[in-house]
Structure formats: structure tokens, C-alpha cells
């Protein structure tokens, strides 16, 4: 399934900017021989600068593998990955490290408890990507302050340890840390799943601002609400395959694929009950057929 994001044209005639991330026919598998297991099958997805693409799907659908492939943490067995116009498919460890060091791509983990080193102060954690780049501590310090401000946290937190912060605060620190190298692409794996609604909204609002500022975001989540509220486009992964991609409104309002219908139908909303068990069974049968 190929998708044409707004602003780009597969024919290549437009002067549209390079996609921040372009994945074409991506296959990833784990294990060998009989235990070989396909995590992703022929996935193609393109994310334009400033665009927020939500990737939804359930446990085991390959969401995280997609993220890890885009970061070079998993190798593709077929297909190609292009980051900011740079074909990284065949990159070895060294070239990946050099690319990552430029801070073009960043990643935010699901678990804010464990994604910050418990022994480093918030400031040290924040500026780590800069220090890795070779920036001096002195130049990095003011940046730490301004990015903390950008995620609406007080400077007082700089000297604290992660253990003294709430889950929501920690996740915002993790977001600030990912932003400090001014990346053009940020991949977020379930960034709000561990947060309560107030913190969730705060983080999602920060993400919206980022999108507006021209940063491309890939928002991976099993929570349809968060994705619907933030993403411009939604890609639906089912058993390693991309079954549907489209504008967020269309995917939620008029899901075409049976799996998307099942997902959207399963979620209760304030005004509508989820699809009945019979309806869901029918959709499942359709999927297994």
C-alpha cells in the first residue's frame, strides 16, 4: 500500500520538500529458519516535514518494530528507509552513530520511569544529546533551561533527580531531551500511555506545537483517542502489514479496512457505545478469512 502524503508527489515533479521519513516496502523479521517471524511485511509510509502521522495497532502489530527500524535499531530484510532524504537502509553501526549524533532523529520512550537515568540530574539528562555532539557544558546549560520552559516545566527541576519528579513531569523532560538537538523527526512510542488525562493533554499539546513548528512526528500508540486528537494522518498496522492510511478524520469516521473498523468500533466514546460483540465478531471473521 503506497500513500501520498500532502505536499509530495510520487512522480517527483513537485518541488515539495524531502520527506522527513520515507519507508518503502519494509520487511523486518526476527529469528531464523522455522522460528522466523515476520514483524513487518511490505510497509510503506512517508512522513512530510511538519506532519504528524499516528501509527495505531495492537500489541504485536509491529508498531514498535517500525519505530526501531526507522532509528536503525533493527535491520530491514527488504525495502528501504530514508531519513531526511538520506538512504540509511545499508548503514552500518558507524554511519548510524554519525547520523544519530547530528540529532536529526530523536525518540521518546513509553516508560518515563525508566527512560531517564536515575543517577543523573534532570539537567544532565537533558543536555546529554548535546554533550554527545561535542557541545560544551556551558553552551548547553542555557539550552536546557529554554527547552524545559518549552515543555512547561520550571527551571527549579534542573538540579533534581528523576525520582523526585512525577510521571508526567518525567515524560515532559523526556520530550524536551528529544527536542534539544532540534530534530526534524521525532518518533514517539506510546508517549502518553502511562500518563493521566491532565498530563496526557499537556504532552499532546506540546506535540501539536512541535508539528506546527515544522517537526515531523511519528506518534505510535494503541490509544486511538490520543492519535485522533493529534495526528494529521493515521496509519493502521495489523499483523505487520499496513492495512490503511489516510487523513485522521477519514480513518476515524469512515474506516475502510475491517481491522480499522474493528479498532474504531471497539472504542467507546462519550456519546456512542462501542460496536456490539456480534458486530466485532463479524469483523474478526472478515479479518481471518
Amino acid at each position: 500500500m503506497t500513500t501520498t502524503p500532502p505536499g509530495t508527489d510520487t512522480s517527483g515533479h513537485t518541488v515539495a520538500p524531502e520527506p522527513a521519513l520515507e519507508v518503502t516496502g519494509l520487511d523486518v523479521h526476527y529469528g531464523r529458519g522455522r522460528r522466523r517471524h515476520h514483524a513487518l511485511r511490505g510497509v510503506s509510509l512517508s512522513v512530510a516535514p511538519g506532519e504528524t502521522v499516528g501509527v495505531i495497532g495492537e500489541t504485536g502489530s509491529g508498531k514498535s518494530t517500525l519505530a526501531r527500524a526507522a532509528l536503525g535499531l533493527v535491520r530491514a530484510s527488504a525495502g528501504s528507509v530514508t531519513v531526511g532524504g538520506e538512504d540509511v537502509t545499508a548503514y552500518g553501526n558507524r554511519r548510524w552513530r554519525a547520523l544519530r549524533r547530528r540529532g536529526v532523529v530523536q525518540y521518546v520512550f513509553q516508560d518515563p520511569l525508566r527512560s531517564l537515568d536515575p543517577d543523573l540530574t534532570i539537567e544532565d539528562s537533558l543536555i546529554e544529546p548535546l554533550l554527545i555532539q561535542g557541545t560544551g557544558r556551558k553552551e548547553a546549560a542555557p539550552l536546557a533551561r529554554s527547552f524545559l520552559d518549552r515543555v512547561r516545566l520550571s527551571e527549579d527541576l534542573l538540579g533534581r533527580l528523576p525520582g523526585e519528579l512525577s510521571g508526567g513531569q518525567r515524560q515532559r523532560v523526556a520530550v524536551a531531551r528529544a527536542l534539544i538537538t532540534e530534530p526534524r523527526l521525532v518518533i514517539l512510542d506510546e508517549p502518553v500511555s502511562a500518563l493521566d488525562s491532565a498530563n496526557r493533554v499537556q504532552v499532546l499539546e506540546i506535540l501539536k506545537e512541535l508539528g506546527a513548528a515544522g517537526v515531523a512526528l511519528v506518534l505510535i500508540s494503541h490509544d486511538l483517542g490520543s492519535v485522533a486528537g493529534t495526528a494529521d494522518r493515521i496509519a493502521v498496522l495489523h499483523r505487520g502489514e499496513l492495512v490503511e492510511t489516510g487523513a485522521a478524520r477519514d480513518v476515524i469516521n469512515e474506516p475502510r479496512h475491517a481491522y480499522t473498523r474493528l479498532l474504531v468500533g471497539s472504542a467507546p466514546t462519550l456519546r456512542t457505545a462501542p460496536a456490539s460483540r456480534a458486530e466485532r465478531e463479524a469483523l474478526r471473521a472478515l479479518l481471518d478469512a
Binding site: 532509528l71 535499531l73 552513530r97 554519525a98 547520523l99 544519530r100 549524533r101 547530528r102 540529532g103 532523529v105 530523536q106 525518540y107 520512550f109 516508560d111 525508566r114 527512560s115 531517564l116 537515568d117 543517577d119 543523573l120 539528562s125 546529554e128 544529546p129 554527545i132 555532539q133 523526556a174 531531551r177 538537538t181
Partner: peptide, 25 residues
């Protein structure tokens, strides 16, 4: 741990990870 992975994603080398994160633990 995720924080070591986070450092690697920012381009940290093994030496950096050991000096910065592992050694203290």
C-alpha cells in the same frame, strides 16, 4: 535500560555509555 538506549539513539558510543551511565551503577 531505556536510558542507555536513549543515549545510543542520540549517537553515544559504547565508551560514552560506560562512562556516563554504567560506571555509576
Amino acid at each position: 535500560s531505556p536510558y542507555v538506549e536513549a543515549a545510543l539513539i542520540s549517537g553515544a558510543s559504547t565508551g560514552w555509555v560506560v562512562r556516563r551511565h554504567v560506571w555509576v551503577k
